[in-house]
Design a protein around this nucleic acid. Sequence first.
RNA 1: GGCGGCAUAGCCAAGUGGUAAGGCAGCGGUCUGCAAAACCGCUAUUCACCAGUUCGAAUCUGGUUGCCGCCUCCA
Length: 492
Amino acid sequence: MTLRIYNTLKRKKELFEPVEDGRVRMYVCGPTVYDSCHIGHARSVVTFDVIARYLKAKGFDVTYVRNFTDVDDKIINRANQLGIDPLTLAEKYISEFHDDMEALHVEKATIEPRATEHIDGIIKVIEMLIEKGFAYNINGDVYYSVEKFEGYGKLSGRRMEDMEAGARVDIDKRKHNPFDFALWKSSKPGEPTWDSPWGKGRPGWHIECSAMSAEYLGETFDIHGGGKDLIFPHHENEIAQSEAAFGKTFVRYWIHNGFVNINQEKMSKSLGNFIVLKEMIKHYHPEALRLFLLSKHYRSPVDFTDKAMNEAVSGLDKIYGLLERIEKQFGPVSGKDKTRNTTAFQGQFCLAMDDDFNTALGIAALFETVRNMNRLLDELQKRAHSPQLQNKNSFSQDAEDKVRSGRADILKMGAILGILNESPEDYFAKKRSTGLEKKSIDSEMIDKMIKERIEARKAKNWARADQIRDQLDEMNIIIEDRPEGTIWKVKA
RNA sequence: GGCGGCAUAGCCAAGUGGUAAGGCAGCGGUCUGCAAAACCGCUAUUCACCAGUUCGAAUCUGGUUGCCGCCUCCA
């Protein structure tokens, strides 16, 4: 059970060895709260949610810090446009973020610090950097001097000389080097400001993460994550700040998730193709989104399409379908079920997750378990209908044990992936009612028609039964005659 | 201009030296009054192309082509 993680800094997979045995300290860059979350945010948050869940399941004591950037140019601009206070705007989107994440079944981070609540810590780090000669003050603006930090560029793999060649960087003559970045920005009218040794102002973007991670996780910690786009300049700058200020290795393992494309196009505001999370979960089950996102490796790009989402929905239906089948036959999960041997989980699934959180491979293990359990239930059903078979009882006892263990397996895998949070009844009931809403059909009418069809079938009036089924089909309702009774579904 | 990534069946996708997971779709079968669901079987002698290393390569090396990302706010 050795976990290997792809480390962006080293550009290879490495054995994971935390600073302190049995503990993991991890920091993930959260959103700048100036707008609603889109599915790109969802990918990052879900990726690290699964990583945190898995580390906990492996027995680590996990301290997970995910920050909010609640003071920033974008927030100020947006607030000015709307004529409201920037901090009020930030508050609104923080609360929206929480709502979205709850809907997505994202577990709460241990600590969710905000930049504006850590101004003192930020100022302290800037003072250290000035003192050590890594930063300079120009009329109340404090800049970090990238040339002073020897390792600058080591995360993103770029050298200063290369970057200058074709770089598109704003020319600020006051900076010693075009790549020098702001640690502290002097205040302009209408902006939130704090007192500092350099006058009134506000922190730059990168410094908050150096200050807050040090406060909650120490000067060296285990995992730092975020989207690939943050590698440069944000994370490069964080390393420069923290290692210069504290004189220690900042982070041991850097993890970066890939992007979400929409119909093979980069998702961007200018293309107008970004998908807001709370809109999308009106159309798709949040767990289907998680299953979709996790069915590709976290470092690869994923292409969001309705087709891909519908495939995820089919997969989720299949899993819940099995859970429903088991529950109908053996009842809900019992206390005893929770302590069962979960061989597929401990074997295939954990092996996959141990290899750089290979959720796609883990999901394959989940589906294989689903198929195995369905097969067993089929066999059980077959035997029940053939009275000549011997040892029926011992087989069914054995099968029940296996099925219960299989369900425990599936639920354990689901708990890492953050899916299968609902009871199968609720899942399908909700699906039916939202399906009806969309097509504006009345469920009482359906029940009435199904009752009539059951009567017709009892009387072996197949013509009438099929006629009713055809009518329902026209209403986008699908019928399944199961051994336990007739159920219906709404067509996707 | 600089840096980096990717190319596996109809589609999505895992697989970094030992002979191609899983999902979706399709077809055939079992089951069913007929269906649906579920299960079984089939669907890549082959992993963009060329050359090389090796007993052996989708996996390593070199080259070619194509796609994409970052270097500017961005998950």
